[in-house]
Design a protein around this nucleic acid. Structure first.
Length: 527
RNA sequence: GCGGGCGUAACUCAAUGGUAGAGUAUCAGUUUUCCAAACUGAAUGUUGAGGGUUCGAAUCCCUUCGCCCGCUCCA
């Protein structure tokens, strides 16, 4: 695949090339449009991958929405309340204006290395000597109608005498080393202009005029905020409660890389949990803990999973004053020894609801009847407020990739030196039923057991049946697919009524009654 | 976006500018039956794509697409 230096032996780091090869070989993940040479940043899921991804999506849906946190109580001592929502990929363009996604991301921008400020390239102007003669002295950039204009003019006149103003665009970038950025002290801190079209643009309607521009959503979260009022008005939810939303999002990444880790089309599982600002800290801590436990429960246990709190200087605009932001990170083979983000848990304050209230002029507050002063009749007066929001936002594709990387195991001593240790809940194939011999009535018994298992558990994942080839080969195939259990009908089955159960991870076998197989598998699958 | 590396069958890889091949995997059959056994046979390629040089290109040149690595980017 590549000539990249392989990891040193015994480093404990798995080979990403080998994982990608297995993913293709067994039908987990294919390159999108591969027969046409592929398309950068897009991936398709094969039969096993599609089932596995559904299993992970279902696990989130079940554990976040249907039975939040397994029935655990929230910090307020009450059961956690979550409702589902499914919102559109294309929203009104004003949604992205309000959220801040649109401003500054459809035009070329320049960054200031000193102040970290970002300016629209076509808005930046520069004070240069009025004569226009080349000079070694610094010139001064500013944005008109901002405080930087007067400040920079003063500095420029002091340094250069008479000045005139030109657009930054008119000055070649190789002369930018003498420019002082609008809010900077030093010269030469502006980066070259870059296009940041992170959002995919499209047109609504068949005429495709510039008036019809719309965008594919870069996150699912905004759909929740936009429908917050409808959910509050039409259901009986009371703060604190959450809204969960799963779906595709799109970002025109500058550099899609690392298999499915950074792709341009990806699926998110986002929860926005609304609570009163007074309780934000408790709920933030609660969700941090819950989300870590959830990933652990699916097999990402151990050192490869960690929780990392963001430093103050990397906090997003909406989170400066909040309870915090953290990432749940996984040590992917391509990030090792570092980590890559799997899920972000953020206290967003009430930034989003406030923004949408401003832009739509629709009141986004919640009337909380359990707050406010106590009335003589024993009830509360009630209080209007814009709830704060805790956002655990997970990447579904990244989750699948992490589970694949974690499950991938190499053991040269085995007939199948590579195998996938999927948690039974995630495994795309739940079990296989094999007659040891393809005769003597064994296939008939196996087919019956296969039908029983399929009827009972076929909705959760595939149940395999195969009578051909020797048994070792069939086991090996299931090892690579990550199937946790193989039930084998052998010569003793017709007389003793027992089958063998082969455990994928150990290769060990035990005999159980054929009438116990359905219950055995149900217990292992946790259903 | 910049720099480097690499593209041959599903996978791993061969093939001096001169008939595109092997092993594995897949499929069918025989035999065997608890860990990728053996035998027989089948199918599989616009050599990433498009141009050029040449009597002749997987091989040399150009363009482009994709993948990997390092920068950059990632509100």
């Amino acid at each position: 695949m590549s000539e990249a230096p392989s990891q040193p032996p015994n480093s404990g780091v798995k080979s990403m090339d080998a994982i990608m090869a297995l993913c293709k070989r067994r039908g987990f993940i294919y390159q999108a449009s591969e027969i046409y040479g592929g398309i950068n940043g897009f991936w398709d899921y094969g039969p096993l991958g599609a089932q596995m991804k559904k299993n992970l999506r279902d696990a989130w849906w079940e554990d976040i929405i249907m039975l939040p946190c397994g029935g655990a109580k929230g910090p307020d001592g009450e059961p956690v309340s979550i409702v589902p929502l499914e919102t559109c990929i294309i929203q009104h363009p004003k949604v992205w204006e309000a959220s801040g996604h649109l401003s500054g991301f459809s035009d070329p921008m320049v960054d200031c290395r000193e102040t970290k400020a970002r300016y629209r390239y076509d808005h930046v102007q520069v004070f240069v000597p009025a004569g226009g003669a080349p000079t070694e002295k610094p010139s001064f950039a500013y944005i008109s109608d901002t405080p930087s204009e007067a400040k920079q003019r003063k500095k420029a006149e002091k340094t250069l005498g008479a000045v005139k103003s030109v657009l930054l665009m008119e000055i070649p970038t190789d002369q930018w080393s003498r420019i002082v950025a609008p809010d900077a002290e030093k010269v030469g801190t502006l980066t070259e202009p870059k296009q940041f079209n992170l959002m995919f643009k499209t047109y609504v309607g068949a005429t495709a005029s510039e008036d019809d521009v719309a965008y594919l959503r870069p996150e699912t979260a905004q759909g929740i905020f936009v429908q917050f009022k409808n959910v509050v008005d039409t259901t009986r939810v009371k703060v604190p409660f959450g809204i969960g939303n799963i779906g595709k999002s799109f970002r025109n990444e500058v550099t899609p890389r690392n298999f499915t880790f950074r792709s341009r089309e990806f699926e998110q599982m986002e929860l926005e949990f609304f609570c009163h600002a007074d309780q934000a800290r408790e709920w933030y801590a609660f969700w941090k803990k819950q989300r870590m436990e959830w990933w652990r429960s699916l097999g990402l246990a151990g050192d490869n999973l960690r929780l990392r709190d963001h430093q103050t200087d990397e906090l997003a605009h909406y989170a400066k004053a909040g309870a915090g932001v953290c990432d749940i990170e996984y040590r992917f083979p391509f990030t090792a020894p570092g980590f890559g983000e799997l899920e972000g848990v953020a206290h967003r304050g009430n930034f989003d609801l406030t923004q949408h209230e401003k832009h739509s002029r629709i009141k986004m507050q919640f009337h909380d009847k359990d707050r406010g002063e106590l009335l003589p009749n024993g009830q509360r007066k009630g209080e209007w407020y814009t709830p704060d929001c805790i956002e655990p936002a997970a990447g579904l594709d990244r989750g699948v990739l992490a589970l694949i990387c974690e499950a991938y195991t190499v053991d040269p001593a085995r007939p199948s030196p590579e195998f996938m240790k999927f948690h039974p809940r995630i495994a795309p194939i739940k079990a296989a039923v094999y007659p040891l011999r393809n005769k003597d009535g064994l296939p008939e018994i196996a087919e019956k057991l296969h039908a029983d298992l399929q009827k009972k558990y076929g909705r959760l994942g595939a149940i395999e049946y195969e009578a051909k080839q020797n048994i070792g080969k069939r086991y090996a195939r299931m090892d690579e697919a990550g199937c946790p259990f193989c039930f084998t009908i052998d010569a003793d089955t017709p007389t003793a009524g027992t089958v063998t159960v082969r455990d994928r991870d150990t290769g060990n076998q035990e005999r159980i009654g054929i009438d116990k197989v359905v219950a055995f598998l149900g217990e292992k699958l946790g259903v």
